[in-house]
Design a protein around this nucleic acid. Structure first.
Lengths: 335, 335
DNA sequence: AAGGCTCGGTTAAACGATTAACCTCTGCTT
DNA sequence: AAGCAGAGGTTAATCGTTTAACCGAGCCTT
């Protein structure tokens, strides 16, 4: 592989000059410029990233630490992160923390020894320290003193409330996620805020983000006493679907279900799940862009970016408005 | 961060000695050994990987190139690869080819400039060249002249045939995958081989690996004329489920469906899918181990490793044995 | 007792970039 | 005309390792 020295030789200048024109660090005579560029092109010169890193003290690589790749939430995120990192000229070193705080810590020190230029981090839990020798931006779990990009969970909650209202629901059950997670809490309060006055909360269970519902919840779903169960998660939603089916209730004719996340298989369950979609691609791209900016300007103020979510309506929530109208019309309708 | 020189100073020896004892490259006096180790430990010395790479010409990093992270097949694979790579002391640079041959090629050259020690590669298609400046092991798509680890697709096919037979099916329909893909072809021939004599193939459609079935296939499923449709893929299987449901057939009472892959949501569809599970973790770990061995011994003969798959039986295939017995017993059964 | 081996260690030269310091012209200013 | 500034280059040091070449001191061998 061609080295700087080779390019210099071929262009008839010193390595310093080559380095400078290639990086645009110092102005050069048009003639020299031309010769250097030509030589570099002809030799297919690509700088050795290790030499660069050794000299400059930081590499043109980014780290990515995620709690668990196997979580359906992440692949799309990682994909977006890798794509925009590459577009910006970074390589991406990814580490899976296996949902384990210690392993996560190890990942970070590894990245430190690799002198990555920065890392995008999805912490396994909300309380984490951020004193690392590289800039960090977290995704979806803001840590104080550290850049962050998050989805607008509260808006998402509001979206499902609005949808429920629009579809004529009045009594809903709530399968909310772990209150300790900021995102789950935001979804809940967003929902509650938008529901206030229009929606009656028949009951609420706080359940883990899993399709295995705790006994109390499945018992409740055997006699739901509501027309819609709103779930903090698509996984929870399939748990609800399952419990409802087991109890002989038809979804959505008897009771509707709404999820959150729009995991890749949300359209594959029966019935296809109405849910709110997280802007995974935007989140990933935003995170990398933010990191890039931070690397360029370490001193700037903390950045915080929240991305809007969208409702994707499929078949798991019924339109009771239509039903109501149809039922009401013959009885007391006016001409 | 502590450098080799610092350790040397503290131990009162030369940097060469430190380097040698730390790597066990040259024997040293017990006393020196002790002093060096102690000094390194006290300073928390970790070698600078970039300096190492620059000097040795290869980095202690592995590359991973996958066609599309978003494919449910990959996350578990990537996770296993990352885990064992890390256990072996490698960092993992992952690149998503976005199902695009050109982008895949770019990924490889990028990895080359990074001087990775080796790469595990899931090629986007079967015909690819392998002359790269690093050792390669492919996963699931053997390329000639290059190490490979694959799942035993043929065995998987045989497994589904055996299961079909055991459950008393006689006439089956086949939704086979793209014949051009070696894995799909292997599944098919494995199935056909084990089915020979015992199972009648009512019909066969070659369909893409997607839940969107071509019209001919959905039409066929409207009047399946078989008790079981075997699918080359879980995605195809949910397509079949959907078409069957649309046609008013109950699964598995009227017709059974069996998939392949055991994607993470196979248990979430209705009914939960009986399918064959790929040993993703073993595949990933095996690939990295093989790569590690190859890096240590570049000259060795080509390695090829095939991992067994397993049938995971859930609820999408009915037991017609029981039905047959029940139906036959009253009529012509003996005491 | 002198020469040859090992053994355990050191010196110094790479690896391929970046970058501070310096040098040499031109072209202006005064 | 002398002096100065600045533009455009070059030289050489440096980043932190690895590793070939070397060196001195004991220990055998003959």
């Amino acid at each position: 592989m061609a080295r700087l020295k080779d390019v210099a030789q071929r262009a008839g200048v010193s390595t310093a000059t080559v380095s400078n024109v290639l990086r645009g660090a110092k102005p050069a005579t048009p003639a020299v410029q031309r010769r250097v560029l030509a030589a570099a092109a002809e030799l297919g010169y690509v700088p050795n990233p290790h030499a660069q890193s050794l000299r400059t003290g930081h590499s043109r690589a980014l780290g990515l630490v995620v709690p668990d790749l196997t979580n359906p939430y992440f692949p799309a995120l990682v994909q977006a992160i890798e794509a925009t990192a590459r577009a910006l000229g970074y390589a991406l070193i990814v580490m899976d923390a296996g949902n384990d705080g210690e392993r996560e810590h190890d990942s970070l020190v590894l990245l430190a020894t690799y002198r990555v230029a920065g890392v995008v981090w999805v912490p396994v839990d909300d309380r984490q320290t951020v004193d690392w020798p590289f800039p960090i931006v977290t995704v979806d779990r803001p840590l104080d003193g550290c850049d962050a990009v998050v989805a607008d969970h509260a808006q998402g909650g509001a979206l499902v409330a609005a949808h429920a209202i629009a579809r004529g629901h009045r009594r809903v059950g709530l399968l909310s996620g772990p209150r300790a997670l900021a995102s789950a809490a935001a979804r809940r309060t967003g929902f509650l805020g938008a529901a206030a006055g229009a929606l009656e909360i028949a009951w609420e269970h706080e359940v883990p983000f899993s399709s295995e519902l705790p006994p109390a919840a499945v018992e409740r779903l055997a006699a739901p006493d509501c027309s819609l169960v709103v779930c903090a998660n698509d996984a929870i939603a399939v748990g609800a679907l399952r419990a409802l089916r087991a109890a002989g209730a038809r979804v959505p004719q008897d009771v509707s279900v709404i999820g959150f996340d729009d995991v890749p298989w949300a359209e594959f369950v029966e019935p296809a799940l109405t849910t709110v979609r997280q802007p995974l691609a935007a989140l990933g791209a935003g995170a990398v862009a933010m990191l890039h900016a931070r690397i360029a300007a370490p001193g700037d103020a903390r950045r915080f970016e929240t991305h809007p979510v969208t409702l994707v309506t499929r078949r798991s929530v019924a339109d009771r408005q239509a039903a109501t109208v149809a039922a009401a019309s013959p009885a007391g309708g006016r001409p």
